[in-house]
Design a protein around this nucleic acid. Structure first.
Length: 268
DNA sequence: ATTATATCCTGATCGC
DNA sequence: TGCGATCAGGATATAA
């Protein structure tokens, strides 16, 4: 389940591979993806980067006009780079294929929740919230986003219209480090707790990026290999196992039809 | 206005 | 061993 660190990992790995290549042809195998092959044909790929949870490719057509191909991996989407035909045949759940002059970019997605769309400008990519890894995200900004919000903190952290990029795994991890119960209402986070929450958001995400993301069930990077953050997970997926701080068994609850993991002793 | 819920999708897992 | 039921979840549309 790709969240900000996983998407960042994919974008960083793809960038040097696709930079300067040209689109030979775009093939789609899923009618759900209404991707215009015409728009892509012959375009030069200028760069690959992350915006929110989108992997974005900046394209330039023959006249130098730019456009942006934004890929959202949602649950099970993968962007895989391959330069071998045999390898290409082996890929399962292939929904689209961007054949470039130096290899192919495959979009594989078992559950077909992912999206691919071309935008004329970067600003049109539908990312609403603040990127928590950016300078624009500040302690005071966090305070004002918490103000008056009546949602439990776990659900609040996953709101993409406030902060962009936190998903189910990192929401639990951030709250463990911030020592805040996932059930606590956002507005009830005390002023003196906000700095630790702020640091927890930034540190969990930057640490996960450093380790190329978490491979829990669905994530693979651009070469089809695993991320390395699993061994740093303190609560996610550890129901019944002892808390690494206090040995209390980790609890699993359901919030908004999703699993939340936390330590009932460390997090109040 | 804000928050809660249903929906999309299908592989993996579970219980009988 | 086989098979149906359940689970997993990011984001959005719709309902409350």
């Amino acid at each position: 389940m790709p969240e900000l660190p996983e998407v960042e990992t994919v974008a960083r790995q793809l960038h040097p591979l696709i930079k300067g290549t040209r689109v030979v042809v775009c093939r789609t195998y899923d009618p759900k993806l209404r991707l215009s092959a015409e728009l892509l044909k012959g375009a030069e790929v200028r760069r690959g980067f992350r915006r929110g949870k989108f992997v974005v490719f900046e394209l330039a057509d023959s006249r130098g006009r730019t456009s942006f191909l934004a890929v959202h991996l949602r649950m099970t989407g993968r962007l895989l780079w391959t330069d071998s035909a045999a390898d290409r045949e082996a890929r399962k759940y292939l929904r689209a294929e961007l054949e470039l002059n130096r290899g192919s970019l495959l979009f594989c997605d078992a559950r077909r929740f992912g999206t691919m769309e071309i935008f004329a400008t970067e600003a049109e990519i539908p990312v609403r919230g603040v990127d928590p890894t950016a300078e624009l995200f500040t302690l005071e900004g966090l305070r004002s986003m918490l103000k008056g919000r009546r949602q439990p903190m776990k659900l609040w952290l996953m709101r993409q219209d406030l902060l962009t990029g936190v998903g189910n795994i990192y929401a639990s991890e951030i709250l463990f480090r911030a020592r805040i119960s996932p059930r606590r209402t956002a507005a009830r986070v005390r002023p003196d707790e906000v700095p630790l929450l702020f640091r927890s958001i930034r540190e969990v995400l930057s640490s996960a990026i450093k380790h190329c993301g978490t491979t829990f069930s669905d994530f693979q990077d651009a070469r089809g290999t695993a991320g390395g953050f699993e061994r740093f997970l303190r609560v996610y997926g550890r129901k019944g196992e002892p808390c690494r701080r206090c040995k209390t068994p980790i609890k699993r609850i359901v919030q908004g039809q999703r699993s939340t993991f936390f330590c009932p002793n460390c997090q109040k």
